[in-house]
Design a protein around this nucleic acid. Structure first.
Lengths: 342, 342
DNA sequence: AGTTAGCACTCGGGCAAACAGAGTGCTAAC
DNA sequence: GTTAGCACTCTGTTTGCCCGAGTGCTAACT
């Protein structure tokens, strides 16, 4: 549906004024804050039609208008002029992120913090996940006579470690055997390929040494699982309190804590290089249906690997925040790619 | 100050009833919920005296009484009968924590989650910090021709890693040189000893190889810093919404985000093997003065290393939560010690 | 046909008055 | 020292009221 130019102007004014102030906007206030040169009565007529079309609604019979979900959608799709991020702000963001060390988790943490500050929204991000990631390197660092720390590095740059306790002494030949087994059977394999069954048959084939090596193999498989799992990072939760009521804020927090639904949602929404915007009920999660969710993927080495997302009110400042989010995902992707690149 | 037995009974009843219900308790309700066999008038008289002494107070002139800070303090110090955690709950806690892998961070995370669930409080915990910790092991894992991941393990079991980019190719002899330098100059040293100055003089002494090795040394010193820093872990923040108002919840969240004050506060309060309880204004942080803070240290290998803490309302259920917290710190300490032990 | 002025109408927010209920402190008797 | 009784106080809630903002409609105007 295409609105007349004047209706579009009015809708844009309503959306922008409401986003800026949070106050429902009446015909008079609208005139004061727009360049329209018609009377308030005309505006009222137009508003009545916009109401009928479902683009705006009234909190109560005699209050100003507020954009409806559909109104925001129309605004985002047709009216919003996405402005370019000023170079100064770009540099500010960049400098804060570059200070983080090279680990994905830390880069995300830093990026999330910056994002939470500049957007005043809750920030969710997922650690990079590359379905085609393979085990790149495994190291075993003895830290006692029968304990060792195993470290796994995946091709997507994820580093995980876990302590492994053995039933017997960790002798040099066991270590050597382990490394042999690893390089023959695990390096270059993806996490899914490291199944329990595979570990078991492998352990059996080792014969007498099996007893000593199998705890190591189990740890290895644990690590493979951990590497594959995307984690959800939450930041700026306090910002939720700025826009929702008590109960909803609590619900959202609890929802975010059960990170699984969002994680799988994000990972199902790849193949989009532009930020996605879900306004109100456009998302499937009851707890978030009074909020808007904006999320965008970051690319590591050209592949979409993780997501940065914002959760804010439906009257979130789309025009300002979308470019910020977009820029941040770019930066995050670049830095992570840098780390991996030779 | 020692109260009469009857006053103690009345105070205990008030505290317990108020903790249980959140309702101010009047003379009549008190009688219904205690074993006293006197009339309400007598209770009123006693209450008036308790009021005068400052142990209880009235929200408004004609409402029931509520324990004052002093009242809670007296209760905690003299009246509370700390009950033993039922074996069943112990086992439940244990099973959930044992499922965590061996890294301190993950153990804490798991423990924090359990704690948040059973207490309905916000949980803060600090990663283990041993001032006498020394660098135990450094590993350099090449992940590209000019990038490597450096991994540092401290004697207190902390594992940190950072990616390091070199200006030139990471040749075998550079790696060897690096390991030599490390084992000669860093292993067994504490983080404080790894100063920038020390790195610089060391780099100079390497002559022509300095250029190649110094990025590695800088990364090493970064890692040493990271190892030394205690991190603050936050969980169950949503529980804050259950007891404070909006503004205060926001303030507490922001306060917790600026983790430094609490971290240094906790680390200054070691040398106590029992849980500590700070009621209301007994703590020094304005944001927390409407709350109670209960915290307890966990010991790794016999040394106090980190803290688990609860933040909740002043009407928190002291009698129930203190044993839970205590048990959890014991468990956490034990598991972490296990990991380190040979 | 589109625009405008004018007007009656509606509804929420704020404010005061009225009210019910819980709990107190005090007094006088036991 | 304890108790019964009673007047008093204070809060939270409900009710009614008014004010203001904003609407929709009608009739006139261009």
């Amino acid at each position: 549906m295409k609105l007349s130019e004047r209706k579009e102007k009015i809708l844009a004014s309503i959306v922008e004024y409401y986003i800026a102030t949070g106050e429902p906007v009446g015909s008079k206030t609208l005139l004061e804050h727009s360049s329209l040169s018609v009377s308030s009565a005309t505006v009222r007529n137009e508003m009545a039609e916009l109401s009928a079309l479902g683009f705006i609604e009234q909190p109560h019979t005699s209050s100003g208008r507020v954009p409806s979900q559909l109104g925001y959608r129309y605004y985002v799709d047709n009216l919003m002029n996405s402005y370019e991020l000023p170079a100064q702000e770009k540099r500010l963001i960049e400098s804060r992120i570059l200070s983080a060390s090279g680990e994905p988790q830390q880069i995300l943490e830093q990026a999330g913090q910056v994002l939470a500050e500049i957007t005043n929204c809750a920030v969710v991000s997922t650690t990079p996940c590359d379905e085609h990631a393979v085990i790149r390197r495994v190291e075993l660092v003895p830290i006692g006579t029968r304990t060792a720390m195993m470290i796994m590095l995946s091709s997507s740059g994820i580093l995980k470690s876990k302590v492994c306790k053995l039933d017997c002494e960790l002798s040099l030949d066991i270590i050597e055997l382990f490394y042999n087994v690893v390089s023959k059977n695990f390096i270059g394999k993806s996490a899914e390929e490291v199944s329990v069954a595979m570990i078991q048959t492998l352990a059996l084939s080792l014969g007498s040494k099996s007893l000593a090596v199998s705890p190591l193999l189990i740890t290895l498989s644990d690590l493979a699982q951990m590497t594959e799992q995307t984690q959800l990072l939450l930041q700026g939760q306090s910002n939720l309190l700025n826009y929702t009521d008590y109960g909803n804020a609590y619900e959202i927090m609890e929802f975010l804590r059960r990170s699984d639904p969002l994680t799988s949602f994000f990972s199902s929404k790849k193949n989009a290089n532009a930020p996605r915007i879900l306004i109100g009920k456009e998302n499937q999660f009851r707890e978030l249906q009074d909020s808007s969710v904006i999320f965008s993927n970051y690319n590591v080495s050209g592949k979409e690997s993780g997501t940065l997302g914002l959760i804010g009110p439906t009257r979130i400042d789309y025009a300002r925040l979308i470019p910020s989010l977009k820029y941040l995902t770019e930066i995050v992707g670049n830095i992570m790619s840098d780390t991996l690149e030779d």
